[in-house]
Amino acid sequence: MEVRTIKVFTTVDNINLHTQVVDMSMTYGQQFGPTYLDGADVTKIKPHNSHEGKTFYVLPNDDTLRVEAFEYYHTTDPSFLGRYMSALNHTKKWKYPQVNGLTSIKWADNNCYLATALLTLQQIELKFNPPALQDAYYRARAGEAANFCALILAYCNKTVGELGDVRETMSYLFQHANLDSCKRVLNVVCKTCGQQQTTLKGVEAVMYMGTLSYEQFKKGVQIPCTCGKQATKYLVQQESPFVMMSAPPAQYELKHGTFTCASEYTGNYQCGHYKHITSKETLYCIDGALLTKSSEYKGPITDVFYKENSYTTTIK
Protein backbone atom coordinates (compact mmCIF):
# COMPACT_ATOMS: atom_id res chain seq x y z
CA MET A 1 0.00 0.00 0.00
CA GLU A 2 1.47 3.33 -1.03
CA VAL A 3 1.69 6.19 1.47
CA ARG A 4 -0.30 9.16 0.19
CA THR A 5 1.47 12.45 0.83
CA ILE A 6 1.12 16.15 0.10
CA LYS A 7 3.64 18.95 0.29
CA VAL A 8 3.04 21.80 2.75
CA PHE A 9 5.11 24.51 4.44
CA THR A 10 5.64 24.98 8.17
CA THR A 11 6.65 28.27 9.76
CA VAL A 12 6.83 30.18 13.03
CA ASP A 13 7.05 33.65 11.44
CA ASN A 14 5.47 33.40 7.95
CA ILE A 15 8.84 34.52 6.53
CA ASN A 16 10.98 31.40 6.80
CA LEU A 17 8.94 28.60 5.22
CA HIS A 18 10.08 24.99 5.71
CA THR A 19 9.02 22.44 3.07
CA GLN A 20 7.41 19.32 4.55
CA VAL A 21 6.10 16.15 2.95
CA VAL A 22 3.20 15.01 5.15
CA ASP A 23 1.61 11.60 5.44
CA MET A 24 -2.13 11.91 4.77
CA SER A 25 -3.00 8.98 7.05
CA MET A 26 -1.66 10.67 10.20
CA THR A 27 -2.84 13.86 11.93
CA TYR A 28 -0.79 17.06 11.83
CA GLY A 29 -0.33 16.69 15.58
CA GLN A 30 1.30 13.27 15.16
CA GLN A 31 3.69 14.77 12.62
CA PHE A 32 4.41 18.28 13.97
CA GLY A 33 2.79 18.69 17.38
CA PRO A 34 0.38 21.67 17.75
CA THR A 35 -0.40 23.00 14.24
CA TYR A 36 -2.43 26.01 13.06
CA LEU A 37 -3.89 27.08 9.73
CA ASP A 38 -5.02 30.74 9.62
CA GLY A 39 -5.26 30.68 13.41
CA ALA A 40 -7.45 27.56 13.45
CA ASP A 41 -6.09 24.62 15.45
CA VAL A 42 -5.69 21.69 13.00
CA THR A 43 -3.61 19.52 15.35
CA LYS A 44 -6.18 16.70 15.42
CA ILE A 45 -6.95 16.92 11.68
CA LYS A 46 -5.45 14.73 8.94
CA PRO A 47 -3.97 16.40 5.84
CA HIS A 48 -6.40 16.99 2.99
CA ASN A 49 -5.74 17.47 -0.76
CA SER A 50 -6.87 21.08 -0.43
CA HIS A 51 -3.98 21.68 2.01
CA GLU A 52 -1.36 21.17 -0.73
CA GLY A 53 1.09 24.10 -0.75
CA LYS A 54 -0.51 25.81 2.27
CA THR A 55 1.49 27.31 5.13
CA PHE A 56 0.97 26.00 8.66
CA TYR A 57 2.15 27.58 11.88
CA VAL A 58 3.89 25.17 14.24
CA LEU A 59 5.42 25.72 17.67
CA PRO A 60 9.17 26.42 17.81
CA ASN A 61 10.17 22.90 18.82
CA ASP A 62 13.69 22.75 17.37
CA ASP A 63 16.72 25.06 17.48
CA THR A 64 16.19 26.51 13.99
CA LEU A 65 12.57 27.41 14.73
CA ARG A 66 13.43 28.72 18.18
CA VAL A 67 15.94 31.17 16.69
CA GLU A 68 13.47 32.24 13.99
CA ALA A 69 10.69 32.74 16.56
CA PHE A 70 12.92 34.76 18.88
CA GLU A 71 14.18 37.00 16.07
CA TYR A 72 10.63 37.72 14.93
CA TYR A 73 8.67 37.98 18.19
CA HIS A 74 11.48 38.83 20.68
CA THR A 75 10.09 36.37 23.22
CA THR A 76 11.12 32.93 24.43
CA ASP A 77 7.75 32.22 26.09
CA PRO A 78 6.86 28.69 24.85
CA SER A 79 3.12 29.45 25.09
CA PHE A 80 3.33 32.66 23.02
CA LEU A 81 2.69 31.29 19.52
CA GLY A 82 -0.25 29.13 20.60
CA ARG A 83 -1.84 32.09 22.38
CA TYR A 84 -1.25 34.30 19.33
CA MET A 85 -2.91 31.72 17.06
CA SER A 86 -5.97 31.19 19.26
CA ALA A 87 -6.44 34.98 19.47
CA LEU A 88 -6.04 35.27 15.68
CA ASN A 89 -8.80 32.70 15.22
CA HIS A 90 -11.17 35.31 16.75
CA THR A 91 -9.62 38.61 15.59
CA LYS A 92 -9.70 37.49 11.92
CA LYS A 93 -13.52 37.45 12.24
CA TRP A 94 -13.71 41.02 13.57
CA LYS A 95 -14.50 43.96 11.29
CA TYR A 96 -11.96 46.78 10.94
CA PRO A 97 -13.73 49.85 9.51
CA GLN A 98 -11.89 52.99 8.45
CA VAL A 99 -13.29 55.75 10.66
CA ASN A 100 -12.18 59.32 10.01
CA GLY A 101 -9.01 58.08 8.28
CA LEU A 102 -8.09 55.65 11.07
CA THR A 103 -8.46 51.87 11.35
CA SER A 104 -10.93 51.04 14.13
CA ILE A 105 -12.56 47.80 15.33
CA LYS A 106 -16.29 47.15 15.26
CA TRP A 107 -17.41 46.24 18.77
CA ALA A 108 -17.23 42.50 19.63
CA ASP A 109 -15.93 40.38 22.54
CA ASN A 110 -15.26 43.37 24.87
CA ASN A 111 -12.66 44.65 22.39
CA CYS A 112 -13.32 48.38 23.01
CA TYR A 113 -10.01 48.75 24.90
CA LEU A 114 -8.16 47.26 21.90
CA ALA A 115 -9.97 49.60 19.50
CA THR A 116 -8.95 52.58 21.64
CA ALA A 117 -5.33 51.40 21.83
CA LEU A 118 -5.25 50.73 18.06
CA LEU A 119 -6.67 54.19 17.27
CA THR A 120 -4.16 55.84 19.62
CA LEU A 121 -1.18 53.99 18.14
CA GLN A 122 -1.99 55.42 14.71
CA GLN A 123 -1.66 58.96 16.07
CA ILE A 124 1.53 58.80 18.12
CA GLU A 125 5.03 58.22 16.79
CA LEU A 126 6.15 54.75 17.81
CA LYS A 127 8.45 52.10 16.36
CA PHE A 128 8.21 48.53 17.62
CA ASN A 129 11.29 46.39 18.26
CA PRO A 130 9.89 42.94 17.40
CA PRO A 131 9.55 42.74 13.58
CA ALA A 132 6.29 40.82 14.19
CA LEU A 133 4.68 43.86 15.84
CA GLN A 134 6.09 46.38 13.37
CA ASP A 135 4.97 44.33 10.32
CA ALA A 136 1.49 43.77 11.78
CA TYR A 137 1.26 47.46 12.73
CA TYR A 138 1.87 48.54 9.11
CA ARG A 139 -0.84 46.12 7.96
CA ALA A 140 -3.20 47.43 10.65
CA ARG A 141 -2.75 51.01 9.46
CA ALA A 142 -3.74 49.79 5.98
CA GLY A 143 -6.92 48.27 7.42
CA GLU A 144 -5.85 44.65 8.04
CA ALA A 145 -5.56 44.66 11.81
CA ALA A 146 -6.38 41.03 12.74
CA ASN A 147 -2.73 40.00 13.26
CA PHE A 148 -1.86 43.15 15.16
CA CYS A 149 -4.80 42.73 17.57
CA ALA A 150 -3.95 39.05 18.09
CA LEU A 151 -0.31 39.95 18.80
CA ILE A 152 -1.34 42.64 21.30
CA LEU A 153 -3.44 40.04 23.13
CA ALA A 154 -0.55 37.56 23.13
CA TYR A 155 2.03 40.11 24.36
CA CYS A 156 -0.39 41.32 27.07
CA ASN A 157 -1.22 37.76 28.16
CA LYS A 158 -4.90 38.42 27.47
CA THR A 159 -7.55 36.21 25.92
CA VAL A 160 -10.34 37.34 23.58
CA GLY A 161 -13.44 38.41 25.53
CA GLU A 162 -11.55 39.42 28.67
CA LEU A 163 -11.99 43.02 29.83
CA GLY A 164 -8.90 45.10 29.25
CA ASP A 165 -7.34 48.37 30.32
CA VAL A 166 -5.92 50.85 27.80
CA ARG A 167 -3.14 52.09 30.10
CA GLU A 168 -2.01 48.55 30.92
CA THR A 169 -2.13 47.58 27.23
CA MET A 170 -0.10 50.63 26.19
CA SER A 171 2.41 49.94 28.94
CA TYR A 172 2.97 46.38 27.62
CA LEU A 173 3.32 47.69 24.06
CA PHE A 174 5.71 50.47 25.09
CA GLN A 175 7.97 47.79 26.58
CA HIS A 176 8.27 46.37 23.04
CA ALA A 177 8.82 49.77 21.42
CA ASN A 178 11.99 51.74 20.80
CA LEU A 179 11.87 54.40 23.50
CA ASP A 180 15.65 54.42 24.08
CA SER A 181 15.99 58.13 23.36
CA CYS A 182 13.08 59.11 25.64
CA LYS A 183 14.01 60.97 28.79
CA ARG A 184 12.13 62.80 31.56
CA VAL A 185 13.57 64.91 34.38
CA LEU A 186 11.30 65.61 37.36
CA ASN A 187 11.79 67.90 40.33
CA VAL A 188 10.09 67.40 43.69
CA VAL A 189 10.05 70.43 45.99
CA CYS A 190 9.12 70.17 49.68
CA LYS A 191 9.28 73.14 52.09
CA THR A 192 10.74 70.84 54.77
CA CYS A 193 12.97 68.46 52.78
CA GLY A 194 14.20 70.72 50.00
CA GLN A 195 14.26 69.52 46.39
CA GLN A 196 15.13 66.31 44.63
CA GLN A 197 15.60 65.66 40.92
CA THR A 198 14.90 62.33 39.23
CA THR A 199 15.70 61.25 35.68
CA LEU A 200 13.50 58.62 34.02
CA LYS A 201 14.24 56.74 30.80
CA GLY A 202 12.24 54.57 28.40
CA VAL A 203 8.64 53.62 29.26
CA GLU A 204 8.67 55.58 32.53
CA ALA A 205 9.69 58.69 30.62
CA VAL A 206 6.49 58.76 28.52
CA MET A 207 3.80 57.65 31.03
CA TYR A 208 2.47 59.49 34.07
CA MET A 209 -0.33 58.42 36.42
CA GLY A 210 -2.01 61.07 38.56
CA THR A 211 -3.11 63.91 36.30
CA LEU A 212 -4.50 64.21 32.77
CA SER A 213 -3.24 67.73 32.11
CA TYR A 214 0.23 68.00 30.60
CA GLU A 215 0.14 71.76 31.27
CA GLN A 216 -0.57 71.10 34.95
CA PHE A 217 2.32 68.61 35.04
CA LYS A 218 4.63 71.34 33.71
CA LYS A 219 3.39 73.83 36.33
CA GLY A 220 3.43 71.32 39.18
CA VAL A 221 1.20 68.70 40.79
CA GLN A 222 0.68 68.18 44.52
CA ILE A 223 2.03 64.90 45.90
CA PRO A 224 2.52 63.69 49.49
CA CYS A 225 6.18 63.94 50.55
CA THR A 226 7.87 61.12 52.51
CA CYS A 227 7.94 63.51 55.51
CA GLY A 228 4.12 63.66 55.47
CA LYS A 229 3.80 67.24 54.18
CA GLN A 230 2.60 68.23 50.71
CA ALA A 231 5.26 68.54 48.02
CA THR A 232 5.13 69.84 44.44
CA LYS A 233 6.34 67.69 41.57
CA TYR A 234 6.95 69.34 38.21
CA LEU A 235 8.44 68.53 34.83
CA VAL A 236 11.93 69.95 34.28
CA GLN A 237 12.73 68.32 30.95
CA GLN A 238 10.95 66.06 28.46
CA GLU A 239 12.53 64.44 25.39
CA SER A 240 10.05 62.18 23.56
CA PRO A 241 7.72 62.18 20.53
CA PHE A 242 4.63 62.00 22.80
CA VAL A 243 3.51 61.78 26.43
CA MET A 244 0.67 59.77 27.95
CA MET A 245 -1.08 61.28 30.98
CA SER A 246 -3.46 59.06 32.96
CA ALA A 247 -5.72 59.28 35.99
CA PRO A 248 -8.71 57.34 37.34
CA PRO A 249 -11.71 58.19 35.10
CA ALA A 250 -13.21 61.55 36.09
CA GLN A 251 -15.16 64.36 34.43
CA TYR A 252 -12.64 66.28 32.38
CA GLU A 253 -12.93 68.94 29.72
CA LEU A 254 -10.96 68.39 26.53
CA LYS A 255 -10.18 71.58 24.63
CA HIS A 256 -9.81 71.38 20.87
CA GLY A 257 -6.22 71.73 19.67
CA THR A 258 -4.60 71.17 23.07
CA PHE A 259 -4.14 67.38 22.85
CA THR A 260 -3.76 64.58 20.28
CA CYS A 261 -6.24 61.96 21.48
CA ALA A 262 -7.79 60.56 24.65
CA SER A 263 -9.54 57.52 26.16
CA GLU A 264 -12.98 57.89 27.71
CA TYR A 265 -14.06 55.22 30.19
CA THR A 266 -17.67 54.85 31.34
CA GLY A 267 -18.66 52.32 33.97
CA ASN A 268 -16.91 50.75 36.92
CA TYR A 269 -13.92 48.48 37.46
CA GLN A 270 -15.85 45.25 36.76
CA CYS A 271 -17.71 46.45 33.74
CA GLY A 272 -17.21 49.47 31.55
CA HIS A 273 -16.76 50.79 28.05
CA TYR A 274 -14.00 52.72 26.27
CA LYS A 275 -14.43 55.35 23.57
CA HIS A 276 -11.73 57.28 21.75
CA ILE A 277 -11.65 61.08 21.42
CA THR A 278 -9.43 62.62 18.76
CA SER A 279 -8.63 66.26 18.07
CA LYS A 280 -8.57 67.01 14.32
CA GLU A 281 -10.15 70.11 12.74
CA THR A 282 -12.78 69.57 15.43
CA LEU A 283 -13.25 66.93 18.16
CA TYR A 284 -14.34 63.45 17.10
CA CYS A 285 -15.52 60.58 19.26
CA ILE A 286 -14.92 57.10 17.83
CA ASP A 287 -16.86 54.23 19.38
CA GLY A 288 -16.06 51.08 17.40
CA ALA A 289 -17.52 51.80 13.95
CA LEU A 290 -19.47 54.88 15.12
CA LEU A 291 -18.29 58.46 14.68
CA THR A 292 -19.69 61.61 16.29
CA LYS A 293 -18.25 65.11 16.18
CA SER A 294 -18.44 68.06 18.53
CA SER A 295 -16.67 71.36 19.10
CA GLU A 296 -16.28 70.76 22.83
CA TYR A 297 -16.16 67.71 25.04
CA LYS A 298 -16.60 66.91 28.71
CA GLY A 299 -16.71 63.36 30.02
CA PRO A 300 -15.07 60.59 32.06
CA ILE A 301 -11.53 60.70 30.65
CA THR A 302 -8.79 58.36 31.86
CA ASP A 303 -5.87 58.86 29.40
CA VAL A 304 -4.77 61.86 27.34
CA PHE A 305 -1.99 61.73 24.74
CA TYR A 306 0.00 64.80 23.72
CA LYS A 307 2.53 65.32 20.94
CA GLU A 308 5.93 66.40 22.24
CA ASN A 309 9.46 66.74 20.98
CA SER A 310 11.57 68.58 23.48
CA TYR A 311 10.55 70.66 26.50
CA THR A 312 12.61 72.44 29.15
CA THR A 313 11.06 74.26 32.11
CA THR A 314 11.35 78.00 32.68
CA ILE A 315 10.73 77.53 36.43
CA LYS A 316 13.81 78.74 38.27
Rank of each mutant, 00 (worst) to 15 (best):
E71K: 10
T258A: 11
N147P: 13
Y84A: 03
E162T: 04
T76H: 10
T103R: 06
L37M: 13
T27L: 10
T260R: 05
N61Q: 10
E296H: 15
G143F: 01
A150E: 01
T43C: 12
K92L: 11
T169S: 04
T75I: 10
N309G: 12
V8A: 10
G33C: 05
I286S: 02
G53E: 13
N268H: 14
I6F: 13
P130E: 06
A154S: 07
Y72P: 05
P224D: 11
H51A: 07
K44W: 10
I105C: 06
A154P: 03
L88A: 05
A140S: 07
I286V: 10
A87I: 07
L186G: 04
K7T: 14
A177N: 04
K229I: 08
L59K: 09
V99S: 08
L133C: 07
T35F: 09
N100R: 09
A231K: 05
M244H: 04
E52H: 14
Y73C: 03
E253D: 10
A132K: 07
P97G: 06
T198G: 03
L118N: 05
I45A: 12
E52Q: 13
A262H: 00
S79K: 14
T226Y: 11
R66V: 13
T282F: 09
Y36D: 05
G299L: 00
Y297M: 06
A115R: 02
N110D: 04
T278V: 13
T11F: 05
A262R: 00
F217W: 07
S25I: 09
D38S: 09
Q270T: 10
V21H: 12
L163C: 15
S50V: 12
H90S: 12
S246A: 02
M26D: 12
P224L: 13
T120C: 14
E162W: 03
T5Y: 12
F56R: 03
K93Y: 11
R139A: 14
R66P: 07
V304Y: 01
K93L: 10
C112S: 01
N268C: 10
G33Y: 06
Y73F: 09
A115H: 02
D180E: 11
D38P: 06
C149H: 03
M170R: 02
Q20S: 13
T55W: 07
Y36A: 04
V3C: 12
V185D: 04
V166T: 06
T27R: 10
Y265E: 00
A115K: 03
V203M: 10
Y284L: 14
F148W: 03
C261D: 00
